[in-house]
């Protein structure tokens, strides 16, 4: 298209102009994460603890939220973290990432940047080499930008 939108076109498409992704897409249903967890880990119990999850309590933009997750583990052949899975329950699709680790990692820590479609709870679940499951969760507020067209 030409760089300049004609007035009528602009008015007609104004609502789409900003291509805001945090838009009316249904959030995941509460049971969705539980279903995912059952698929990954069966009915093994998930205990609180061992996992530290860091996200800024307030993010000025939900498109790129820094996340750091670390699991307390010696990371030896006998005792190490095998998986870390992350969920954002209110996102349209709750999966964030599933990391696979082993004793060669040396340290059970991963950092990345994620999308949050609004203020919500983020969960991290770690699976250890003995099969035990540990988890934590943290809440993050995503503020609304001023000049967006919704």
């Amino acid at each position: 298209m030409a760089e300049t939108l004609r007035r009528r076109e602009f008015l007609a498409h104004g609502a789409a102009l900003f291509s805001v992704a945090l838009v009316p897409v249904a959030a995941a249903t509460p049971g969705e994460v539980e279903l995912e967890l059952a698929g990954l880990f069966g009915d093994r119990p998930i205990l609180p603890g061992r996992v530290t999850l860091e996200i800024p309590p307030i993010s000025e933009n939900g498109y790129s939220v820094p996340l750091s997750v670390e699991v307390e583990s010696p990371m030896t052949v006998e005792d190490h973290v095998t998986r870390i899975v992350l969920f954002a329950e209110e996102n349209p699709q709750p999966n964030i990432a599933r990391f696979e680790l082993g004793p060669r990692a040396g340290r059970a820590r991963v950092q990345t940047r994620i999308r949050l479609g609004g203020s919500q709870k983020v969960r991290a679940i770690a699976e250890l080499s003995d099969g035990s499951l540990w988890s934590t969760e943290t809440f993050s507020i995503v503020t609304l930008a001023a000049c967006i067209i919704q």
């Binding site: 030409a2 760089e3 300049t4 939108l5 004609r6 007035r7 602009f10 104004g14 102009l17 900003f18 805001v20 992704a21 933009n61 498109y63 790129s64 930008a145 000049c147 967006i148 067209i149």
Partner: peptide, 30 residues
Amino acid sequence: RLEWQTFGSLHRRIRDCDAGVRAEPQASGS
């Protein structure tokens, strides 16, 4: 720009300002 989830020019940013006040954005590079 986080809202764009990509890299862009100052003129693209100004177009968004114009659109934000419901004015017709001018061409980038104009």
